[in-house]
Amino acid sequence: MATTGIESWAVDLKDIGAIYPFQGAEGLFVLAGVVLWLGWHFIQIRAENEEYDGIISRHGDDASINEALEGE
């Protein structure tokens, strides 16, 4: 049994519809995609905030900022 449901191309194409694998599980695929999407935002936002916190703790003093601006 093929994952696509197509065992042979000895068919009339007008009788064939979807040709991707695991038909019938589209809802699960979409659910997985939505979870990945929302998870990506959470991970990214946390990482971005940590990045800024790290920069400020190491280089956020007035001397470092003045040095950086002079180098611009």
């Binding site: 007008k14 064939i16 519809g17 979807a18 040709i19 991707y20 589209e26 809802g27 979409v30």
Partner: peptide, 13 residues
């Protein structure tokens, strides 16, 4: 819809 059969490879669409 995201889970419609016509959103993937489909010889009818």
């Amino acid at each position: 819809t995201a889970w419609s059969e016509t959103m993937g490879p489909n010889t009818g669409d």
